[in-house]
Write a protein that binds this DNA or RNA. Structure first.
Length: 290
DNA sequence: TCCCAGGCTGCTT
DNA sequence: AAGCAGCATGGG
């Protein structure tokens, strides 16, 4: 089995923070780097010295799929410079983790994983999605001596899986949601590929038609899967941050909150969201419980 | 034992 | 329209 290497020069790219920041759930950190599956290929990544080194198990014609996934061509300093300068909380989050990036994941996998995510901790989402891959995905070529790896099962495959089989993957009450969404897509009711050509609001409206998909999950898919940079998923962590920093001692209606997000964070609000999320969840939390 | 987790749905007011 | 119980499962 051939092992194929590549090397990318990067600036302002914090690979561990990006792969571990709760936007993708398939990456595992080991002594030799971060191992995961991108578009049906086993990959290991290692960062250092202004470079990201990549290793795969099978030769590919080019590396565009990985550059696209890692969003290597995004001009991060330009995005960070456009954040509101008078926002102390956001600026602190940026200073704490200046190379945090957004990935561009495959939309179906992203959608399925976030349907599994509701009211779950990130570690558990990782476990659930790993079970789905192992059980219903296809085995992938890996270098000798490596753990087996599996593709993430497509919606056609999951549409044929019984609810109890999904529950055995620890999906709990999310099982009928994932099954329902997979069946709808398999039946041609909804075309994920078409969403990329729509506006943010139009694409969100399409996602909201799927079972188990509300505002939060829709915005995650729009941000992490389709690359709409203004999508701003509001989960419990972000809600905590927004209340604390922007609405102390005030109740906020969802409509007012959305208006605030749009006007305050601007057209790249999704990046601001990821910085606030990571700061709240990892950095502030670690400081508080140390 | 209790509270919470990258929520959504459907039923009550 | 807004509030809220219920939904599985596991971590701290």
């Amino acid at each position: 089995m051939n092992i194929v290497h590549a090397d990318f020069a990067v600036e302002n790219y914090d690979l561990p923070a990006t792969l571990g920041s709760g936007q993708a759930f398939g990456w595992r950190c080991g002594p030799q780097g971060w191992t995961g599956v991108v578009n049906g290929r086993w990959v290991r990544l290692r960062a250092g010295g202004g470079r990201i080194a990549a290793e795969t198990a099978a030769p590919a014609a080019d590396w565009q799929w990985l550059r696209h996934y890692l969003q290597l061509d995004v001009n991060l300093p330009e995005i960070l410079a456009a954040f509101p300068s008078d926002d102390a909380a956001l600026q602190a989050a940026v200073r704490a983790c200046p190379g945090l990036r957004l990935l561009r994941q495959e939309p179906w996998e992203c959608l399925a994983c976030f349907i599994c995510s509701s009211s779950k901790q990130i570690v558990q989402i990782q476990q659930i999605t790993a079970l789905l891959s192992r059980r219903f995905g296809e085995p992938l070529p890996v270098p000798p001596g490596e753990e087996p790896a599996y593709s993430f099962p497509g919606f056609a495959r999951l549409a044929d899986v019984s609810e109890s089989d999904l529950r055995e993957c620890k999906l709990g009450f999310r099982a009928p949601y994932l099954r329902g969404t997979a069946q709808k897509l398999a039946a041609g009711e909804g075309d994920l590929g078409r969403l990329a050509k729509l506006s943010l609001d139009e694409a969100r409206a399409e996602l909201l038609k799927l079972p188990g998909v509300g505002m939060k999950i829709a915005d995650c898919v729009l941000l992490f899967g389709y690359g709409f940079p203004e999508a701003f998923p509001v989960d419990v962590w972000i809600m905590k941050a927004l209340r604390r920093h922007y609405f102390p001692r005030r109740s906020v209606t969802p409509a007012r909150l959305r208006r605030f997000i749009r006007s305050h964070f601007g057209p790249r609000a999704g990046y601001a969201q990821q910085y606030l999320f990571h700061y709240m969840r990892v950095i502030e939390n670690a400081r508080g419980t140390k």
